[in-house]
Design a protein around this nucleic acid. Structure first.
Length: 252
DNA sequence: AAATGTCCCAACCGCAATTCA
DNA sequence: ATGAATTGCGGTTGGGACATT
């Protein structure tokens, strides 16, 4: 299921992420944010390209990410959104909190596509005579516009203007950007050779976690000092550290 | 039990869009 | 205004797990 780790010509590691790499990435992004993915691996002590780090964070490590176990409601929403939006996975993912575009894309190709295509012909006949279907699509599309608009209004970017007066790009509304806004990144540290945070608690963590870190591990991560220091002002119960949305809600 | 086929999904790649200098 | 750097997106691949022969 996973690719065997190996290094490319430039010495950058590829393939499966190890728990240690996950730990380093989480430790770095949580404390410093991710202003520059290209430079991040160097400061975090990772022999990965920035692109790989970004993907790993966005799809598997960021707080609140959900894995597997799609509900009927989620699947139904994916199918309907795909019908109206096509392969715009990032847009579709924005309608399913905690789901990444990559996972939705995989789930579509491995599960929903066949089911959807199998039923599409009969559905079209039903939908043609069912105005409620169109109203549902319209309501989802309307909801999409509202989600984007409200997240933009709530962000600090909403009041900023570029020097020439243009509106800022609406792409600054991702979950990772929200996390950045919450965590007020510290100044860039020295490169990893002088930075031991990632290894200070790693041995303890590894004793209890041999698998790559998943969303379920955030409870355990909370128990580690620097994570809890970061989150302590915002939560009262460690059990609640399962979704960045929960934390973000405290700022509204 | 071994060989072969299929499924599933983590991760990579190329490219377009956006930002920066 | 422009070219370089960076980011984000969607398509595709690689390979382990599981099913079938």
């Amino acid at each position: 299921m996973v690719r065997t780790p190996y290094c490319d010509k430039s010495g950058l590691k590829k393939g499966t992420w190890t728990p240690e790499e996950d730990w380093k990435l989480i430790a770095y992004v949580t404390t410093h944010g991710h202003k520059n993915w290209r430079q991040l691996p160097k400061f975090a002590g990772l022999a990965r390209c920035g692109k790989s780090c970004r993907l790993r964070w966005m799809n598997y490590l960021r707080p609140g990410i959900k894995r597997g176990n799609y509900t009927c409601e989620e699947e139904e929403r994916i199918v309907k959104l795909h019908k109206s939006l096509g392969n715009r996975w990032s847009v579709i993912a924005s309608h399913l909190p905690g789901r990444s575009d990559n996972e939705i894309k995989n789930h579509w190709h491995s599960h929903l596509k066949k089911r959807f295509q199998h039923n599409s012909e009969t559905n079209e006949k039903v939908e043609a005579s069912n105005p409620e279907h169109h109203s549902l699509i319209e309501s989802i599309q309307e909801e999409s516009r509202e989600v984007v608009a409200s997240s933009f209004q709530n962000s600090s970017l909403a009041t900023s203007q570029t020097p020439d007066g243009d509106s800022p790009s609406p792409q600054h509304t991702s979950l990772s950007d929200v996390l950045c806004m919450i965590s007020e990144p510290e100044p860039e540290p020295e490169p990893a050779s002088n930075w031991n945070l990632a290894t200070d608690n790693f041995a303890d963590f590894m004793e209890e976690n041999t698998d790559p870190i998943s969303a379920h591990s955030w409870k355990e991560l909370y128990d580690i000092s620097f994570i809890s220091e970061f989150l302590a002002p915002f939560v009262t119960e460690p059990e609640s550290v399962c979704s960045v949305y929960d934390v973000w809600g405290l700022f509204k």
